[in-house]
Amino acid sequence: MTMTDDPTKATTDNTRVPDPIHAPGAVMPPLGECALLLDIDGTLLDMAPTPREVWVPPELATALGRLLQLTNGALALVSGRSLNDIDLIFAPMQFPAVGGHGAEMRLTPENESVAAHAPPLDKELKRRLAAIAKLSPGILLEDKGYSLALHYRLAPHAEQAIYDAVSAIRADLPNAPIEVLPGKFVCEIKHSGFTKATGVIELMTHAPFTGRRPVFIGDDVTDETVFAIMPGMNGLAFSVGRHAQGVAGHFGEPNDVRAWLSQLVKNSKSIG
């Protein structure tokens, strides 16, 4: 069965993805059968000059809380941020989450976070990488434990110098098990062997996520590993700000994602 073209007049279990998503014909599984997996920066939240300056609109927190209930707990934030940082941003609310690009995981809001087999970066390596922040004023250093991020939104002219310095360190340590993740005005260096995709795969083996169809929304290069695994998991992937390869559709900006999530809540009320 299909529903009417107007998503606010839904009368069946399936919810056709409404505007502003660019996904003609894409059909959401029922909320009780899907797992909502959501990146944070650049997807749920607008980018800010520094990671600490992001703002969570009250209506977003409300929608996420309601969707957590409607999915019976199968909603998770999937981020490069640490779980502690995620909790600070969304306080006082807590959500299931995959943090640190798959290094950490929390299955329910009440559970303690657990490491997903991810060793922290070597201290000496961190020290050398941290020194790169001295290349220019405006480069912000963020130590996540499992990774180290160099943010240059306030110093965009330093991009090439940052990557050159990271490459030089990697050349000195060719056997170091590290991976460089380019992002939006950020260069992140993490231990290899785990990604957002490995975190999502692990997450989906645990209740209440197991057996559900994942629906993932992300915006950055680091989200592409998750885009790539969605077809094999019978899932849907949507990108933000660009039409990434392999996704079912895309949103223009985070505000569109927030409006869509609010619409899902409204749809559930009209169906119920």
Rank of each mutant, 00 (worst) to 15 (best):
L264C: 14
P49Q: 10
E202P: 00
S113E: 14
Q263R: 10
A244H: 06
G102C: 01
L261T: 03
D220T: 01
T12I: 08
I89C: 11
G249V: 09
F90Q: 06
D256P: 01
G25E: 02
D46M: 01
G252I: 09
F216S: 04
L203F: 12
D143V: 08
I162F: 06
F251C: 09
L75C: 11
P51N: 06
I40H: 11
G102S: 02
N255D: 12
G100H: 05
R16P: 15
Q245I: 09
M230Q: 07
A165L: 10
D13Q: 08
S136T: 09
L135M: 04
I21T: 11
C187L: 12
I169R: 14
T210E: 13
K184E: 13
P120W: 10
A48C: 09
V215L: 11
R212C: 04
P119E: 02
A244T: 05
D13I: 05
R170V: 13
L135F: 05
P174E: 03
F209V: 03
A237I: 04
V54N: 11
G232M: 07
I169T: 13
K134H: 15
A248K: 05
L203I: 10
D39E: 07
R52T: 15
A103R: 02
A91V: 03
P57L: 10
A63Y: 09
A161Q: 07
T12K: 00
H101L: 06
V186I: 09
G246P: 02
R242D: 04
R258F: 01
S192R: 14
V180Y: 01
A97V: 00
A115F: 07
A207S: 13
S270I: 00
M105G: 08
E179Y: 05
V200D: 10
L261G: 03
A10Y: 00
P137I: 00
F209S: 07
L38C: 08
D172I: 00
I86W: 12
L107Q: 05
V98Q: 09
I217N: 12
L181A: 12
F90E: 07
